[in-house]
Design a protein around this nucleic acid. Structure first.
Length: 605
DNA sequence: ATCATCAGCGCC
DNA sequence: AAATGGCGCTGATGAT
């Protein structure tokens, strides 16, 4: 299937037009069968096309496999459960990820479940049962789960499992396709599934650490940690990582007063005393001893164990001359943005401390790390969903500074605030935030008054959730709030989620994936060597040779703007009227270098 | 020994 | 009575 061509005029109807081929692979099972472990190998590939089920196994030879893979690149939909896994394997044996359209029954099931408030499991057996089919065959399933390698399971039994898998997967696909058509969710399914092969590819690349920078940072951190640890040891011989023990020391021994709001002590959700940095910063000192401990604890957190942990992992990685790999998951989060898990070194790609981004560089010498980042993405999406002309005006006005406006408003209301300190308040109303100091509440009021389109839309969502227990969005997504209700005090429970989910979801589960898909296909279409190596919610990270600077900038600009407008218009039948923009940073290391920012108004050609 | 939960903290 | 969203990972803790 020529996907690049399809993307010029995308339509979700492709799923009603193309015939399915359902597939399932078995592999040896080191690292859970990871395609990145060179000691693993493909054991079998089973496909179901119409009524024909065939299985390739190792003894059939690689030539037969190649022929089979070519048939998967025809005008068909590849159906599989967690098909990213299968794709990564098949890519190793020659399948072109650029030329397949997939339907991942796990991902589509998540689409149908929306935020999945009941946390229903999404493994194949559980989904099958919910559709009224038999679960997995228990014995082989038990073997697989307890680590028996598929290559040692009797062929006939393995075959039986493969046949079950493809039959059930295909049956689920048929029901899901019908459901998606009826619910108007086919477009969302398309967006999610177009991203799947892209993720399969991104994961295979991984990111490169700069050995010298890592070692320098590591040595520095260890030195500082030694100093602070010694200081703390002189204060008390307790476990400083234990909130319980630190709480006892602070509030019982040292007699710090707990922070209060409205006369009541601030506590953790389970009622424990607060010992986090933000709390410690606010504790009032009256004695020298208190001052000393507060100082040490703050320094301890600045160079805290978590940082040492990430540096430890970085160090292990560079010591092994290795690449850092992450895995993305499309079926975890309530809003359908990606979640990321660290693979070998247990580091997530999405929460690398900002100050450590400079430790990442390129695999090729003299290439650059490029980061394309959707400008104020969630704010703009909120503006679009609220059809808010004030948002459009403010983002188009180069003199308008949202954070400075926040700072000024807070200061005018009697709470002197710097631009930096204002940042955390600027978009709090987008998350449904309403409480805080008097000045903060005043700011939230003014925010809602200024962006009345946004706040009215949020109120509409809240009412809809109250009446129907769900919020349905124009692009087909639905979020379910079975327990939302108004409490005695007049507060609507779950209102923060109701306000935030649509915005976060459309921004980071639709727009950025669309940008990723288009970037990925355009890189290939224009024969660039640049590769995508990571994505973090509203950004795309690439490795790129310097001579591709102009071409890549052009691609990113189009992908983050026009491609999104056109895709949203064709697939979601929505006219996106708020300008989108992209900021592009290019440098020898991640997050270094000057940023170019460009917005493009949507012009439909 | 293993598991679930809490608290803390990193990112967007 | 109050209530800013979404994650994953770690260490501590307490139960099984």
């Amino acid at each position: 299937m020529n996907v690049a061509e399809f993307l010029k005029a995308p339509t979700e109807e492709i799923y009603n037009e193309l015939p399915p081929i359902t597939l399932d692979v078995e592999t040896t099972n080191l690292d859970k069968g990871s395609a990145l472990n060179p000691h693993n190998r493909l054991v079998s590939l089973t496909t179901k096309e119409g009524d024909t089920i065939t299985t390739w196994t190792e003894k059939d030879g690689l030539a037969a496999l190649e022929t089979k893979l070519l048939s998967l690149e025809k005008d068909v939909v590849l159906v599989g459960h967690n098909i990213k896994f299968d794709l990564q394997w098949l890519a190793i044996y020659g399948l072109s990820l650029y030329d397949v359209v997939v339907w991942d029954t796990m991902v589509v099931e998540k689409v149908l479940l929306g935020n999945n408030p009941r946390m229903l499991p999404l493994d194949l057996g559980s989904v099958a049962k919910r559709y009224g089919m038999a679960g997995k065959e228990p014995l082989v399933d038990l073997w697989m789960k307890s680590g028996v390698c598929p290559s040692t399971i009797p062929t006939s039994m393995l075959l039986k499992r493969n046949v079950y898998d493809v039959k059930v997967t295909e049956a689920i696909y048929k029901k899901q396709l019908k459901q998606c058509n009826e619910d108007g969710k086919l477009g969302v399914a398309l967006t999610r599934c177009l991203l799947t092969p892209v993720l399969a590819d991104i994961e295979s690349h991984g990111m490169q650490l700069d050995k010298d920078r890592v070692m320098e940072e590591y040595d520095k951190a260890m030195e500082q940690q030694a100093i602070v640890t010694n200081g703390l040891l002189e204060v008390a011989n307790i476990n400083w990582n234990s909130p319980k023990q630190v709480g006892e020391l602070l509030y019982d021994k040292l007699k710090f007063k707990e922070l209060k709001r409205h006369g009541k002590p601030l506590r953790t959700p389970a009622g424990g005393r607060m010992t986090g940095v933000d709390t410690i910063k606010l504790l009032k000192c009256t004695t020298k001893r208190q001052k000393n401990v507060k100082n040490l604890l703050l320094r301890n957190s600045a160079i805290n164990a978590k940082l040492t942990k990430s540096l430890n992992a970085f160090k292990r990685c560079v010591d092994a001359d290795d690449i850092l790999h992450f895995a993305f998951r499309q079926h975890i989060t309530a809003t359908h943005r990606l979640s990321s898990v660290g693979t070998f070194y247990k580091l997530q790609g999405q929460n690398i401390p900002r100050k450590f981004k400079r430790l990442f560089t390129t695999k090729e010498k003299d290439w650059d790390i490029v980061e394309g980042d959707g400008s104020n993405l969630e704010f703009r999406v909120a503006g679009e969903l609220g059809d808010d002309d004030q948002v459009r005006e403010d983002i188009s006005n180069p003199d308008f500074d949202a954070h400075q406006t926040t700072a000024d408003t807070l200061t005018r209301a009697g709470q002197e605030t710097s631009r930096q300190d204002a940042k955390s308040h600027t978009f709090k109303p987008l998350y449904g935030g309403t409480s805080g100091t008097d000045a903060e509440v005043e700011y939230y009021k003014q925010f809602n008054a200024r962006y009345s389109g946004v706040s009215e839309t949020q109120e509409r969502w809240k009412r809809e959730a109250l009446e129907t227990k769900k919020v349905r969005l124009p692009w087909g997504m639905e979020f379910f709030f079975p327990h939302t209700k108004i409490t005695r005090s007049g507060y609507q429970e779950y209102s923060t989620q109701i306000c935030n989910y649509p915005v976060q979801s459309f921004a980071t589960a639709d727009i950025i994936p669309i940008a990723l898909v288009y970037t990925w296909h355009m890189l290939r279409e224009y024969k660039l060597r640049s590769v995508i190596v990571n994505t973090v919610h509203d950004s795309i990270i690439l490795e790129s040779p310097k001579d591709e600077t102009d071409k890549l900038n052009e691609i990113l600009l189009v992908a983050f703007t026009k491609s999104c407008y056109n895709y949203i218009k064709r697939v979601y039948k929505m006219t996106f009227k708020t300008p989108l923009g992209v900021g592009i940073k290019r440098g020898s290391h991640w997050s270094e270098g000057d940023e170019i920012k460009t917005d493009i108004e949507n012009t439909y050609e």
